[in-house]
Simulated scan of single mutants.
Amino acid sequence: MQILDSYIKATNTHDFKQVKKLLHPKAVYFFSDQTCTCHEEIQQYFENAWSIVKNENYEAHDVEWLDQKESSATCIYTYFYEGYINDEYICGKGRATNIFVKEADRWLLVHEHLSS
């Protein structure tokens, strides 16, 4: 589905305004170290990560759509990231689950769960 590609592309802009356009008003994120339950918390988490990992690139590999309906879709994938911390190249990967809902003919991310 195009919404996942759009979400990854928005994330890689490092501009939360672009990410927020694709978030449901009640979006909830489960990160490995924190749960974010509102856009302000999600924004703070993203912007903190972008300030630590410079030039970060985020990708979704091995995407599997578990369920696709008219108004909801769920996928799992392996996430991959790379960038620089203190001028040293770093990279890593983990597991992700994303749930999207369709409202007013727009797909929005309502939940993301990341684990290393």
Score class of each variant (00 low, 15 high):
residue 115 S to F: 07
residue 77 Y to C: 13
residue 4 L to N: 07
residue 30 F to P: 01
residue 62 D to G: 12
residue 35 T to A: 03
residue 27 A to Q: 01
residue 27 A to S: 10
residue 113 H to W: 05
residue 90 I to Q: 01
residue 105 D to K: 10
residue 75 C to E: 10
residue 32 S to D: 11
residue 64 E to T: 14
residue 34 Q to T: 05
residue 49 A to E: 07
residue 74 T to F: 07
residue 3 I to W: 07
residue 94 G to W: 13
residue 47 E to M: 05
residue 5 D to C: 02
residue 30 F to M: 09
residue 112 E to N: 08
residue 115 S to Y: 04
residue 2 Q to I: 03
residue 92 G to Q: 12
residue 99 I to V: 15
residue 76 I to L: 11
residue 2 Q to W: 04
residue 85 I to K: 12
residue 106 R to P: 01
residue 74 T to V: 15
residue 103 E to Y: 03
residue 57 N to P: 02
residue 56 E to Q: 13
residue 21 K to C: 06
residue 20 K to D: 11
residue 46 F to K: 03
residue 25 P to F: 12
residue 80 F to T: 01
residue 36 C to G: 05
residue 59 E to A: 13
residue 58 Y to L: 15
residue 101 V to I: 15
residue 39 H to V: 09
residue 60 A to T: 08
residue 88 E to A: 11
residue 26 K to W: 00
residue 62 D to T: 09
residue 43 Q to F: 06
residue 30 F to D: 04
residue 7 Y to K: 00
residue 110 V to H: 04
residue 65 W to R: 06
residue 37 T to S: 14
residue 54 K to F: 05
residue 7 Y to Q: 03
residue 17 K to H: 09
residue 50 W to D: 03
residue 13 T to G: 12
residue 72 S to M: 13
residue 112 E to P: 00
residue 78 T to E: 06
residue 28 V to Y: 11
residue 89 Y to C: 02
residue 14 H to G: 01
residue 29 Y to K: 09
residue 34 Q to S: 09
residue 106 R to I: 02
residue 68 Q to Y: 14
residue 22 L to G: 04
residue 115 S to T: 15
residue 16 F to R: 00
residue 31 F to D: 12
residue 107 W to K: 09
residue 88 E to R: 13
residue 63 V to N: 07
residue 88 E to C: 10
residue 18 Q to H: 12
residue 90 I to R: 00
residue 64 E to A: 10
residue 91 C to F: 15
residue 100 F to L: 02
residue 7 Y to W: 12
residue 16 F to H: 05
residue 9 K to I: 06
residue 93 K to M: 09
residue 104 A to L: 09
residue 51 S to M: 10
residue 6 S to N: 13
residue 13 T to I: 13
residue 29 Y to E: 11
residue 21 K to G: 03
residue 57 N to H: 15
residue 10 A to Y: 09
residue 93 K to R: 13
residue 27 A to I: 06
residue 26 K to L: 11
residue 108 L to D: 01
residue 19 V to D: 02
residue 116 S to Y: 06
residue 107 W to H: 12
residue 23 L to W: 06
residue 43 Q to K: 13
residue 7 Y to S: 01
residue 1 M to Y: 09
residue 61 H to V: 01
residue 60 A to C: 11
residue 104 A to T: 11
residue 76 I to G: 05
residue 15 D to N: 15
residue 8 I to Q: 02
residue 80 F to S: 00
residue 96 A to F: 00
residue 22 L to R: 03
residue 85 I to G: 04
residue 3 I to E: 11
residue 59 E to S: 12
residue 44 Q to V: 04
residue 41 E to I: 03
residue 10 A to E: 11
residue 52 I to D: 02
residue 53 V to L: 15
residue 7 Y to A: 01
residue 71 S to L: 15
residue 87 D to I: 06
residue 61 H to P: 01
residue 95 R to F: 07
residue 19 V to R: 03
residue 106 R to K: 15
residue 95 R to L: 13
residue 93 K to W: 10
residue 78 T to R: 12
residue 40 E to W: 00
residue 21 K to D: 11
residue 49 A to G: 10
residue 111 H to T: 14
residue 53 V to A: 10
residue 54 K to S: 14
residue 18 Q to P: 05
residue 5 D to R: 08
residue 33 D to Y: 13
residue 42 I to T: 01
residue 59 E to L: 14
residue 85 I to Q: 13
residue 19 V to H: 03
residue 93 K to V: 00
residue 48 N to V: 01
residue 51 S to W: 08
residue 109 L to K: 00
residue 111 H to P: 03
residue 5 D to E: 14
residue 47 E to H: 02
residue 105 D to N: 15
residue 71 S to Y: 14
residue 116 S to K: 07
residue 104 A to Y: 12
residue 107 W to F: 10
residue 73 A to D: 00
residue 111 H to R: 14
